[in-house]
Design a protein around this nucleic acid. Structure first.
Lengths: 151, 151
DNA sequence: ATCAAAAATAGAATAAAATTCTTTAATAAT
DNA sequence: ATTATTAAAGAATTTTATTCTATTTTTGAT
């Protein structure tokens, strides 16, 4: 993991479709070393995957909501149960177990308020062990999918 | 935007490196229509970009923290000022203006607690107009970078 | 139902990129 | 200094993306 590798990661997390050739040109190397470094970064797990970033509004997901979830019981079994259940819902894009004012932070995508309400009432609230749910509706995505500040 | 386009988006958000050829095979079409559909989805903004997903722990970012930020003054000018300032910090990966219990939700990556404290004390808290900051430390990423539930 | 126009697809050909291979240079350990 | 190891260059090959032309399918107007 040297300066070159970090530069490669930086370029790839900005543009996953950048060609080996172009990386090579930018870093003043030939394609072979870049190719081998990229493959090594993939093998070693530095690069987890490549993804296309889809515009949520274009596919009609008008609502983004963050939910703060508090549970009643906090023994491992109950946590595992909740984590298993919550992942099943397609509306749940992200879920974090946090230490702070509440237990879980989840990120929800929905087409509209009606669907969000349906998720909340018929899916989330139906899970056992839920004590409290607080919703924060996203008005503006000030800084969206950004880049890791690779040290 | 038909069934085929949605299938293409679904495949690409799972694997941004999937080849046109492979998409074609999976959808029982030839490369030409797939190629043209992908280009159209890019042109029309359905696909915003392609990115490599980096493993934060591998690059030594051991801490993920969500901060709930409340401001003192909420006139547009003050909001804009805060939004402009917050984006400058490389530690801030995401920032959302939300309607709920607080004003902004920000996602922070840091190498360790010391660097997080430095961010909090010397960067975030130094901004004018901050009323309250509540940190939630991520213990487990139950569901991480996931996919939009394309309707 | 029929026809014309437009759109979508297939299949072949070309261009570009990824990948492999061989050789050379740089680096580090003895 | 010498050898082993690693990294890089440059050329060759394979694969993929891209373009082009011909054909088929769909759509909408009559």
């Amino acid at each position: 993991m040297d300066k070159i590798d970090r530069s490669i990661l930086f370029l790839l997390q900005k543009d996953g479709k950048i060609t080996i050739k172009e990386i090579a040109e930018r870093l003043n190397l030939t394609t072979t070393p870049i190719f081998e470094r990229v493959k090594k970064l993939e093998r070693d797990g530095y690069i987890k995957s490549y993804k296309a970033i889809i515009d949520r509004k274009k596919v009609n997901l008008q609502l983004v909501v963050f939910c703060n979830v508090t549970l009643n019981l906090h023994q491992t079994d109950y946590l595992k149960k909740f984590e298993k259940d919550i992942q099943q819902f397609p509306e749940v894009a992200e879920c974090y177990h946090v230490a702070g004012m509440f237990d879980y932070l989840i990120k929800i995508y929905a087409q509209d308020m009606e669907r969000y309400q349906d998720f909340l009432s018929n899916k989330l609230a139906s899970l056992e062990n839920i004590s409290k749910v607080q919703s924060s509706f996203v008005m503006t995505e000030v800084k969206d999918f950004s880049y890791l500040p690779i040290p």
